[in-house]
């Protein structure tokens, strides 16, 4: 139905696509460590050697783990498998709360202690009015 030229042009596009997709997959696969925005406490546990540079650790703020004193704020980031203690001094975003997502930027002291220089709150994908949240909470 279509001419030879049309078929060739179609083939050409298909080849460009396959090449690009394969290349992109390879690049992304090898860059995976750098593409992630933060590491989980489990990733930190599995590190072969302690990272000296600034890194980000993310997860949930463990329930009843926030303690504030005059100098600093302490809390625990958990991914339900492993935990890491974080110390921080400074202002936190409004959405920072126990049981909610958090990303801490800073330096590792050792495998269990992290000294944060910046705290970001991670928002989850749930959107609902307060009344609905209350109704859900009562269950």
């Amino acid at each position: 139905m279509y001419g030879r030229k049309v078929k060739l042009r179609f083939l050409f596009v298909v080849i460009i696509f396959s090449t690009l997709i394969l290349t992109t997959l390879l690049i992304l696969k090898s860059l995976e460590e750098n593409v992630v925005y933060f590491q989980s406490p489990t990733d930190i546990k599995l590190l072969n050697e302690l990272e000296k540079n600034k890194i980000r650790v993310g997860g949930m703020v463990k329930k009843n783990s926030i303690s504030i004193n005059a100098k600093e704020l302490n809390f625990i980031i958990t991914d339900q498998k492993n935990e890491i203690n974080v110390t921080y001094s400074g202002a936190v975003p409004n959405l920072f709360a126990e049981g909610k997502g958090v990303v801490a930027e800073g330096f590792l002291k050792d495998r269990n202690f992290f000294s944060a220089t910046k705290i970001l709150a991670k928002h989850d994908e749930n959107y609902m009015p307060p009344e609905v949240k209350e109704a859900l909470g009562e269950k």
């Binding site: 593409v35 992630v36 925005y37 933060f38 993310g58 991670k122 928002h123 994908e125 609902m128």
Partner: peptide, 22 residues
């Protein structure tokens, strides 16, 4: 990947995690 941005709230195949009033 781990991102700061939240995952999609609206999913054509399963229940959306956004309330219908929104």
């Amino acid at each position: 990947w781990n991102t700061l941005h939240q995952p999609a709230s609206i999913n054509l195949l399963s229940k959306s995690s956004i309330h219908s009033s929104m």
